[in-house]
């Protein structure tokens, strides 16, 4: 469903050139829960941003549902992100001036959906992450774990085909981290949501059904490939 083909990402500053991704080829299938691990600076976030069409590769291209996304205009990319992708960030990135439910409505705001329908779907998404009681709160009135659950609800509200989560438990203690992980696992198992998650936590990665390891901008291991070889 998402394919990365020969992706290269090079950051150039005046003094140095950093190769963040070096000819990465990767295919994520519908219904998979993929975790990505690797040392800091090896290009995981860069990979996720490119996969989520937030950033452009230096060379190579991304294909969604078999369609290459190469020469898309800004508004067409925005539409694809809006309809197909939901993001979860390490630092939540909630809009602190908006209430919980308004935050969750965000992806629907950029679609032709009536206000009532928006509210309904946002409340449904909040229910899925167990936050129905906190809809009128503001982000700064919530704990870190609760904020991340709001962020997941926001990613769910638009009913995307894939959720991209960059260290979703990175800022949380292990209890809250497990809570978040449980929600993601349940979404994947019960609703069939495709998830790609970057994590530093081996235990969490082992709970997913595919683990890819990165080193220095390259894939060095892919559990699915390993299984296939065995």
């Amino acid at each position: 469903m998402i394919q990365l083909i020969d992706i290269e990402k090079v950051y150039r500053t005046k003094t140095i050139e950093t190769v963040a991704l070096n000819r990465v080829n990767l295919q994520v299938e519908r219904g998979e829960f993929v975790s990505i691990m690797g040392p800091s600076g090896c290009g995981k976030s860069t990979l996720l941003n490119i996969m989520g069409l937030l950033d452009e590769p230096t060379s190579g291209y991304v294909a969604i549902d078999g369609q290459p996304v190469k020469t898309h205009s800004d508004s067409k990319l925005a539409k694809l992100r809006n309809e197909k992708i939901g993001f979860v960030f390490q630092s939540y990135h909630l809009i602190h001036d908006l209430s919980v439910v308004d935050n969750v409505e965000l992806p629907l705001l950029y679609r032709k959906v009536s206000g009532g329908e928006r509210r309904k779907r946002a409340l449904e998404a909040l229910e899925k992450v167990g936050l129905s009681a906190r809809t009128k709160h503001f982000p700064n009135q919530l704990s870190g774990g609760q904020r991340q659950r709001v962020a997941i609800a926001r990613a769910l509200a638009g009913n995307p085909e894939i959720i991209l989560a960059d260290e979703p438990t990175g800022n949380l203690d292990s209890v809250m981290g497990d809570e978040i992980m449980d929600i993601l696992l349940r979404l994947n198992q019960e609703e069939g949501t495709t998830i790609v998650m970057v994590t530093h936590d081996e235990n969490m990665a082992l709970k997913t059904n595919r683990l890819i390891r990165f080193f220095d901008g390259q894939q060095v291991a892919d559990s699915r490939v390993l299984e296939a070889q065995i």
Partner: peptide
């Protein structure tokens, strides 16, 4: 965030 969720 808005861009990530579909604002052009």
């Amino acid at each position: 965030v808005r861009k990530a969720f579909g604002a052009s």
